[in-house]
Write a protein that binds this DNA or RNA. Structure first.
Lengths: 327, 327
DNA sequence: TTGAAAGCGCTAACAG
DNA sequence: CTGTTAGCGCTTTCAA
């Protein structure tokens, strides 16, 4: 089919070893033969077969990425950042989406490992000790983003707990007396890795502890309805702290339909700082999660792991609480 | 390092050929030996090396995707759709971003081909006959999305020309007497593939031809300023038709700052129908581009090409003109 | 400086 | 039904 190094060797009347030396800038080769080989290679438009190279060298120069879904702004931004960084180092990304399906996640990781990716970056939906063991058994360099699996597996993210506390403080500073935390179901926590939401939840409750502020939790996929039920009896100035901007946006959209105004009737704050907030009015207060930085950092650390260097097990990137018009 | 089929053969006291038959459900093997081999494989947690398999079989079960950027909603949705479909068939995606850099695009495609992807899906930024030749020379099954390269290279998209005409009709039906088309620079067209914008531009002008409606074109990255200059002297009811929702959103954001109201002061319409429009008020009128369908279709056609089947060279997917509150 | 040979781990073809 | 062999295209080692 296409032209191989063997062909070039034959044409130039040299051995494949020599061709290899010429093509890959290796020492111990006569500049003249090198020149000739390169010329022929160019003329014939030779392209090394990277699959064969991978097999021979035991490295694929590709890294596997497993995330929820890239319709999700957060992951789109993340993957975008990782790809840009990876390109610089000649790495290719294998991007796969587990769609929050734990079994799917395992399948995808298995597949990536079977394809001999040099490393993995995952935002896992699995948790438990079994999963931790599973990951360790892979013997593949691995970075976890967002949902921590264990103290022992390299992680990069923000301090969600403290971020939630800071968010609550911002809300309190605006004189809200009733705060509602909106997040995905927390009771599934045995099955699904919802580390970040749990951390935020803990931060939320801890910060309000003993403060004589009324608060409640909506941890329910039907949160729109739950918010609806809340609305008629708001005796105090109320704000919703949403564990994810998308929840906040959905709620705002719903409230708009009902002609309930933010922040006049009710305050809202999000989490993550996804880029589309730029286009939304009122500007949503949120906790900005520097996802690009996280992506780049994750990739850099992964490279270190691949090279056998040491890295910090837990990296917490600085976040930022952003005021908006929604509080 | 990890366990190979050779190890299994040795342990089971059979040949590698037999192991292969057992592991890959091939005929001509005694159920008992098969059973034994499978058992050992399971116990040893054997995983076939897919790199080696690729080399041996001459197929990698992976396909390369080259798009602009996945911060861009359009591509995020597209890639998401392709990935979901690919997974069903056991294919893995190699996703790369050319960031509208023509040379980068070539590099990325070269790399993907060298990695022996079984097929390519690209939304090219390159154009010209040279590029067409280049693509044909690759001898790799290929589908082009969005920016057509030539009649001869399989393409999937919408009929941008007609869509633009339909959009203009919608605007006219709302009694606008002055229409401005906003799009990226058209004068670069020698260098950059801006097929879709050109088509829309043509549809726009053709539809207004002879209609005694005033219109102008802003094809300028500094379109915000250009719009600003327009504003003071709007004697007639004016609408902007933006060749991309993002342009429209940026403009709306800007107008909001200046307290200019849409659609009262000026009408706006977008193009693409990206998902985040759900969260934006006023609801943007747009041309809905069924990007998921396009992604799925592209992948299916690519598979056909890989299998050597015939496909239609040009596929036009149905679009939809969506009314909104912005006109 | 160059060549020859072995090997990466798998599949495929043929012979038994 | 099973084993043997060759080969995918590259890298690497050792010898010349």
């Amino acid at each position: 089919m296409s032209i191989t190094s063997k062909d070039i060797a034959r044409i130039c009347g040299v051995s494949r070893g020599t061709v290899d030396r010429a093509l890959n800038n290796k020492p111990r080769i006569d500049p003249k033969t090198k020149e000739k080989i390169l010329k022929v290679a160019r003329e014939l438009n030779y392209r090394p077969d990277l699959v064969a190279r991978s097999l021979a060298k035991g490295e694929t120069m590709s890294i596997g990425v497993v995330v929820f879904d890239i319709r999700n702004r957060y992951f789109a931004q993340l993957v975008n950042a990782i790809e840009k960084e990876a390109k610089k180092y000649g790495y290719l990304l294998n991007i796969t989406l587990q769609e929050k399906d734990p079994e799917m996640e395992i399948k995808l990781i298995d597949n990536l490992v079977a394809r001999r990716v040099d490393g993995l970056i995952i935002c896992p939906v699995n948790k438990s000790n079994n999963f931790e063991k599973y990951l360790k058994n892979l013997k593949v360099p691995l970075i976890v983003i967002g949902n921590m699996v264990s103290q022992d597996i390299p992680f990069i993210g923000i301090d969600e707990y403290q971020a939630a506390r800071d968010a609550v403080q911002l809300i309190l500073s605006k004189n809200y007396r009733n705060i509602v935390f909106v997040c995905p179901p927390l009771h599934d926590k045995e099955k699904e890795n919802i580390y970040s939401h749990e951390q935020r939840y803990k931060g939320f409750t801890d910060e309000l502890e003993g403060k004589y502020i009324h608060y409640e939790i909506i941890d329910n996929w039907d949160y729109i309805n739950a918010v609806d039920k809340l609305l008629p009896n708001l005796s105090e100035k109320t704000a919703l702290l949403c564990s994810g901007d998308t929840f906040a946006l959905e709620i705002m959209k719903h409230l708009r339909k009902k002609n309930i105004y933010v922040p006049n009737h009710i305050g809202i704050m999000g989490f993550d700082g996804i880029d589309i907030l730029d286009y939304i009015t009122p500007r949503l207060a949120t906790v900005y999660n520097p996802v690009d930085t996280i992506g780049v950092h994750a990739f850099k650390n992964l490279i270190k792991l691949i090279k056998g260097e040491q890295i910090e097990k837990q990296v917490f990137i600085e976040y930022k609480v952003l005021e908006g018009e929604s509080l």
